[in-house]
Computed example of a mutant assay.
Amino acid sequence: MDAAPALTTSLLAALACVVVVMTATALRARQLGVVAVVDVAWGLGFVIVAAVTALVGLAADGADWHRWLVLAMVAAWGGRLAWHVRSRAVGQHGGKEDPRYEEMLGGSLQEVGLGTAVRRVFAVQGTAQWFVSVPVAVGAVLALEHTWVLVLGVVVWATGLVFEAVGDRQLAAYMSRPRDERPPVMDQGLWGWTRHPNYFGDACVWWGLWLAAAASTGWVAGLATVLCPVAMTLFLRNVTGAKLLEKRMSQRDGWDEYAARVPMFFPRPPRS
């Protein structure tokens, strides 16, 4: 298969995967009564896209080890994320909607209906998922050209995964303590370096995946797809991630002092 047809096939296959995943997730959300189940589909959807486009690449030019490495990177990140959020998305709220999504919808799923949820959440998340996955889909069908870029991508990806996984673990430990025995704001560990280590780590993961994929695309295609991790970073920081969460967190005692001392997104060593 020539490069151009293979590239088109890979991008269309990625789009088809996202449509199927988001459609199935919308139906599951209607069954459970909570839109937050989309958080599980977010990580798993990327894994499915990476797996399918890797198979497209296999048909295009045979076995190329780097695409399987990228698939493993996406699977490690997406699988961990889906496992981490599964109970929060469908069980922790006891059938109640995640406040983030309730704000997006303007009410509960039962109040606004599935159509509104599809327009405001599933279609938006699906579009973002496909766009962000474009470097993976492109890199899957092209041969490795720059090994050093691939190595750099793995390093950035690993840094992000550590921030995300360790930050989530530290937060879970904080939340497991009795409310009267924990400070009102989590400011220990990585949370003393950035107010959102999990979102910062998520962004790093996708910058690393972009580098790993760009190692096989050449400089022109690599620069063209740089908008994808840029969009992911903006999405995490300014849309459904850190900024939206801070609207609720800012009501807590001690938040203003914490926000003045610790940066919102990009980490730096803690200071008094």
Rank of each mutant, 00 (worst) to 15 (best):
K96Y: 09
R261F: 03
A82K: 02
G218R: 02
R252H: 09
V20P: 04
F131Q: 01
H196W: 03
M22Y: 15
L236I: 06
A172T: 11
C228S: 15
G43D: 09
A72Y: 03
A231G: 14
Q92V: 14
L32G: 03
T53H: 08
L227F: 04
T8K: 15
H66C: 03
V112R: 08
A51F: 11
A89D: 06
L211Y: 04
V47A: 05
R195G: 10
V149N: 01
W219N: 12
L144Q: 15
S108D: 02
R261M: 00
R169F: 04
L114I: 06
L81V: 11
K243R: 15
L69T: 02
R100A: 03
A259C: 07
G192F: 05
A172C: 07
A59W: 12
G94R: 13
D187W: 00
D61K: 12
L11P: 08
V132L: 10
N198D: 07
L152G: 12
F235G: 03
P263G: 04
T9M: 08
A221E: 10
M73N: 00
M249R: 13
V134A: 11
E145K: 13
V239P: 07
E145R: 14
L223E: 00
V239E: 10
R179P: 01
D64L: 14
G62L: 04
A137P: 12
Y199I: 11
A213S: 15
V239A: 11
H66Y: 08
G45Y: 07
T147F: 12
L152K: 04
A260M: 08
V18G: 02
Q188A: 13
A26L: 14
V34S: 03
E181H: 06
